[in-house]
């Protein structure tokens, strides 16, 4: 059995928190360039110009890309043959968040829901664990901002509503969100499972690279159809109009109860900050 010191996890998580908040993934930056070149509305091009310059400035100065450096969200795949020494894994991840958010001068945005008192160190983070075969530990980190998270929704459709019901709910949600979640957005869609599981699917789908293909050809076609429809809404970058309301749509599906059709729409802003590490 392989062993892993929890200090390694702490340092890896701290590093991801800092790095992800300064450097936007390459696929996101590439998508900005591609979408910008298709825009003819001057305001849309200007927003893309500012976002690109913002990436350059964050890299140069070490300032985070956005002041909202997010609630720290994690998807963890723990190999069942791996033994972790020292702290328990949840504590190790939270210690990594404490360290990264402090040393990286990142904003601490976690607070008590009633008193609104800040917890002071951006913990606790939201962690989804999965036990998998093997002896490695894979941790995906997402800095999830409040503005786009607030525009996300979950609903329980009737099975009879089918694809048309799903499609309308997603489009209606994006239309209502309008300029609020910092478009251009990425739309994560979770279909199936239960009331609690659909949003997990939607969030996890947001970890995929922009412009990749869904391995399921049927879902791939539906992602493309929805992306085209979302962009017909014409909201555009920052809600000022244009062709790019969404950069991409990512869908994940799981079987559900014969009586249900759970649907979650998790909206991600253009500052799609995530990173992963394998230990």
């Amino acid at each position: 059995m392989r062993t892993l010191d929890s200090d390694v996890i702490v340092d890896a998580v701290a590093g991801m928190c800092i790095h992800a908040n300064r450097y936007l993934p390459e696929d996101v930056q590439r998508c900005f360039a591609q979408c910008s070149s298709k825009e003819s509305v001057p305001a849309a091009r200007e927003i893309f110009r500012q976002l690109t310059e913002n990436c350059t400035l964050a890299a140069r100065t070490g300032l985070p890309l956005c002041q909202d450096t997010g609630l720290a969200c994690f998807f963890v795949e723990l190999g069942q043959d791996l033994h972790i020494m020292g702290r328990n894994i949840r504590e190790a991840i939270n210690d990594g968040v404490r360290k990264g958010y402090d040393e990286g001068r990142l904003r601490k945005s976690a607070c008590d829901p009633f008193t609104r008192a800040n917890t002071g160190d951006n913990t606790p983070s939201v962690i989804h664990f999965d036990i998998v075969p093997g002896d490695t530990l894979r941790i995906s980190f997402m800095a999830k901002g409040g503005g786009s998270e607030n525009m996300s929704r979950v609903t329980m459709l009737a099975p009879a509503e089918g694809w048309e019901g799903i499609r309308k709910f997603v489009l209606q949600r994006v239309a209502e969100a309008g300029p609020n979640p910092c478009p251009p957005i990425v739309v994560g869609i979770g279909i199936g499972g239960t009331f609690d599981y659909a949003p997990v699917l939607a969030k996890k789908a947001l970890l995929r690279k922009l412009g990749d293909r869904n391995p399921d050809p049927g879902l791939d076609a539906r992602e493309k159809e929805l992306l085209a429809d979302i962009n017909k809404l014409g909201i555009g970058p920052m809600g000022l109009g244009g062709l790019t309301t969404a950069l991409d749509v990512k869908m994940a599906v799981s079987p559900c109860h014969i009586a249900s059709l759970p649907l979650a729409v998790n909206i991600q802003c253009h500052s799609a900050r995530h990173e992963e590490v394998e230990l």
């Binding site: 100065t61 300032l63 890309l65 956005c66 002041q67 909202d68 450096t69 904003r107 503005g147």
Partner: peptide
């Protein structure tokens, strides 16, 4: 805003909703 780093008056400082 995010915390000010050494040598700057303020950290990252864009608008909230």
């Amino acid at each position: 805003p995010s915390p000010a780093p050494e040598g700057r008056p303020i950290g990252s400082a864009g608008p909230t909703t």
